[in-house]
């Protein structure tokens, strides 16, 4: 019951940013519910609490619509990781990241980690079309070749079928890597001291699940030091942490399930 877990207090925050319709909500769904379902354009924002080992990670899904743009900075405040999402079939969505969304991340943590994610890879890339997992919840361990082959292909309702034509890929991996480089420069970070672009630029498909787990789990692992640092700070801090006195309970409270 993910809803109940919302009562728990998160240790760290990850924020999904990006233009409307790039598939932020779909990515989060795919990861948390292991399926691809119909979405409506997000209003305001929503979040999901993920238990990762002993930690609670909150993943915020923001609204890409212009109307809610102003809320972005607030969502990013204190973020340990930001996922900048674009749509590989839409050049403008990548441009928007730089023009509109990059500045929202000013409020994120100083050591915030950035990932540049090109979604809807299934529309341009045959290897992203194979379903990564079945719609059933249980799937563990490495997938065997036969499972991949026997997985059913994209239903014909989609604009693309396996044999059919591919949409034009408007944004290449190199474009994303370049953006990542500019992002580091914008942040005043040394490219050599930062996480390499290869590692932080992903192409995903919320529809097939391609690379989705990899994306989130790479980030979870990368934000762990941030969690530990935050915990230490709280311990050392001489001031009373009012957050901790709230009715929602102590940070250390473990969840019941």
């Amino acid at each position: 019951m993910p809803e109940v877990s919302k009562l728990r207090k998160p240790d760290v925050k990850i924020v999904l940013l990006g233009d409307m319709n790039v598939g932020k909500t779909s990515l989060l769904h795919r990861y948390t519910e292991r399926r691809f379902k119909d979405t409506v354009s997000t209003v305001g924002g929503a979040f999901f609490l993920k238990q990762w080992g002993p930690y609670n990670i909150s993943i915020w899904d923001t609204a890409g619509r212009e109307q809610f743009h102003g809320l972005g900075s607030m969502y990013c405040r204190g973020a340990a990781a930001v996922i900048l999402t674009y749509d590989v079939t839409n050049w403008q969505s990548l441009a928007e990241l730089e023009e509109r969304f990059l500045s929202l991340t000013d409020t994120a943590n100083h050591d915030c980690i950035y990932a540049v994610v090109g979604n809807k890879a299934d529309l341009t890339d045959p290897k992203a079309q194979v379903h990564q997992d079945s719609d059933s919840v249980s799937e563990e361990g490495p997938r065997t070749e036969s499972q991949v082959l026997s997985a059913c292909p994209t239903p014909p309702a989609s604009p693309v079928s396996l044999s059919g034509l591919m949409l034009h890929k408007q944004v290449t991996h190199e474009d994303a890597v370049a953006l990542y480089g500019r992002l580091l420069r914008y942040k005043g970070l040394d490219e050599k001291a930062s996480l390499p672009a290869d590692k932080m630029c992903f192409e995903t498909s919320a529809k097939t699940g391609y690379n989705v787990d990899t994306l989130f789990e790479t980030l979870f692992d990368l934000v762990l030091p941030s969690i530990l640092r935050k915990r230490n700070e709280n311990k050392e801090s001489p001031t009373v942490d009012l957050e901790d006195c709230r009715g929602t309970g102590k940070k250390t409270r473990s969840s019941c399930c």
Partner: peptide
């Protein structure tokens, strides 16, 4: 908040 949202914010 804009768009008819009720936003929560802490101190």
């Amino acid at each position: 908040a804009p768009g008819g949202l009720g936003m929560f914010a802490n101190a």
